[in-house]
Design a protein around this nucleic acid. Structure first.
Lengths: 191, 191
DNA sequence: CCATGATTTAGACTGTAATCTGGACTCGGA
DNA sequence: TCCGAGTCCAGATTACAGTCTAAATCATGG
């Protein structure tokens, strides 16, 4: 992937929901038209459809990670930080259901789109695991295998949000995010 | 979809992990060869790739539902039933990571493969929701929106299992299923 | 045994979308 | 002005899903 110029990247990100959360998946030609470029240009910067998706999802992962970081007060105890983190995740995903869909697709494709998974692991999952480890240290969390717990937690948030988006309900509703966060965090807390 | 004869269906189900959990996704010709039939035969019974995937995932949903039902003692209180249900889900999925992948893909495609989602809703999600409603009745579970809670729960199990499969760890390990079930159920229980 | 219809197949054909090719257009520096 | 790197695009090529046909095979009742 040749990193695309800033303005093209911008327009691609702006169109990303159209690209990721549309049925049927748009042809590269349509994507090109959507961002005011030609199909060949996309192929100039990206080695193909998968590479483009990887770019979009990776960028979202970074943005999401930034949003999540911003929602956390690092002085708080682990339990509070976890609540904030999960709520922020749900918030970001709720505004970008396409990212949910894209991530799940990436998980489903087993290998292709590996870079997406890696990026998400670095930007989203790793901080979560770190937090879980912290909480385990202070006996706030009852976690045995941290990686497994993190996977389950992420899955709950992803499908919780996506399910709501698909059903037409409002996934950006704060009370919804609250409840989801509550359910997810309770699964981790020591009794 | 013309329902395929029993032996062909059998062979397709046997090959389903190859079909669902392979990278890159196999061409229809390869699938045909895998089950010892011709491409034309597949098109005789299925209207296309999506129809075939729908068949496989729907069949798995039914089998999974049967396995889950079999693991539940309907006289038990909701909490016990939920533990058993989640453990059975994890068990079935652990042995069929391809189903995890296929389901997630179906969720990611937003519309295409809708029948898969519907089948899973009927066979897997609906019983779960019913159980959650039961438990709420007896004050065993603290659930507000049952559909949302069920989505999150299913997501945790799906990604928990798939994540483990992808990482190469053994997703059929009983202790793993135990821990996953514990985490997921705790999120639901009243304090 | 034959007749009939259902199943299965090889193979040719079509259409669509991904991918590749070659060239054109910038623009900063020599 | 010329060069070359970076950028962009129109059109050719390729791969494969999907469609169709005509023939082969099988099953079953008469």
């Amino acid at each position: 992937m040749k990193t695309p110029p800033a303005d093209l990247a911008e327009r691609l990100l702006d169109a990303s929901e159209q690209v990721l959360f549309t049925d049927p998946p748009p042809r590269l030609e349509d994507v090109a038209q959507l961002v005011g470029a030609s199909r060949a240009t996309l192929y100039y910067y990206f080695s193909g459809r998968d590479d483009l998706l990887t770019f979009l999802l990776t960028a979202h992962a970074r943005r999401g990670a930034a949003a999540i970081q911003g929602a956390i007060n690092s002085d708080d105890p682990p339990e509070l930080r976890l609540r904030a983190m999960v709520a922020a995740m749900a918030g970001y995903l709720g505004h970008h259901p396409g990212m949910c869909a894209g991530l799940l697709t990436a998980l489903g494709t087993t290998g292709r789109l590996n870079d997406v998974l890696q990026a998400n692991d670095i930007w989203i999952a790793a901080p979560l695991r770190e937090l879980l480890a912290d909480g385990r240290e202070t006996k706030a969390f009852a976690v045995d295998d941290i990686a497994d717990a993190a996977n389950a937690l992420l899955g709950a948030v992803l499908l919780g949000v996506l399910g709501r988006s698909i059903s037409g309900a409002d996934a950006t509703d704060l009370r919804f995010q609250q409840r989801l966060s509550e359910q997810v965090v309770r699964g981790i807390l020591t009794r």
